[in-house]
């Protein structure tokens, strides 16, 4: 499938003509739309929890796109996400974000909703939908933001997957909002990665991630 693109200025022109966006896409997107629109509807009926909507829809979006041969190259192209948001799934974006939300539709690269969902799942991917569900189900919208909005010079994908896996296996007492361990681990990583390459650390990536978490957990034990 050839993924269509929309520039930021094209999106602005489309939005300037209407208060409410309707789906308006090329025929190739029909199957994708039919499948995912129904899934979103079912999820939205089953829960009002924003995070649940995000990760459940995210997992389905990820699977459907993978089946349509969506690649990393496509996923890092904001114009592809803009087409998907403004032309294919504007109603789902509006439902999730209470109306026409420009940043989440096309305006802010790191906040385009569909893009953040895809990258959240990709950076948490544990081999299958079932395993990845276990990794993400205990989190919140805060984790999505912390993880996806720190792209810097590029995501070290294998590292983030290890961090997400370890975080999902942590005792829940460490995960209470007040301790904020997820955010602390990511910030420590940002500092350490300036001088240490994670995959060459003792024990490799697994050892590095253990080090990041233990830095805070051991301290709190005292």
């Amino acid at each position: 499938m050839v993924w269509k693109e929309l520039t930021k200025s094209q999106c602005e022109e489309i939005i300037s003509t209407t208060d409410k966006l309707e789906p308006d896409f090329d025929a190739e997107y029909q199957e994708l739309y039919d499948g995912l629109a129904k899934i979103y509807k079912d999820i939205a009926i089953s829960t009002k929890n924003k995070y649940k909507i995000d990760y459940l829809f995210g997992l389905s979006l990820y699977s459907y796109l993978r089946d349509a041969n969506f690649t990393l190259r496509d996923a890092s192209n904001d114009d592809v996400w803009r087409y998907l948001s403004v032309k294919v799934f504007p109603q789902q974006v509006a439902s999730r974000w209470n109306g026409l939300h420009e940043d989440r539709l096309y305006k802010l690269s790191r906040r385009i909703w569909l893009k953040t969902l895809w990258w959240y799942i990709h950076l948490s991917w544990a081999g299958s939908v079932e395993e990845t569900t276990k990794v993400v189900e205990g989190n919140s919208t805060d984790e999505i933001m912390q993880l996806v909005e720190r792209s810097g010079k590029g995501y070290l994908i294998s590292l983030y997957r290890q961090i997400m896996l370890k975080y999902s296996l942590l005792d829940s007492s460490y995960k209470k909002r007040t301790t904020n361990i997820f955010r602390k681990v990511l910030i420590l990583n940002t500092a350490m990665i300036q001088t240490v390459e994670p995959c060459f650390f003792s024990g490799g990536l697994v050892g590095y991630v253990d080090y990041l978490f233990n830095y805070f957990i051991d301290g709190e034990k005292q």
């Binding site: 990393l72 190259r73 996923a75 890092s76 990258w119 792209s151 010079k153 590029g154 995501y155 070290l156 994908i157 294998s158 390459e197 995959c199 060459f200």
Partner: peptide
């Protein structure tokens, strides 16, 4: 090492 802001990826 490689870094690509346009591809959102890095590695070594």
């Amino acid at each position: 090492h490689w870094y690509s802001v346009s591809s959102s990826q890095r590695g070594s």
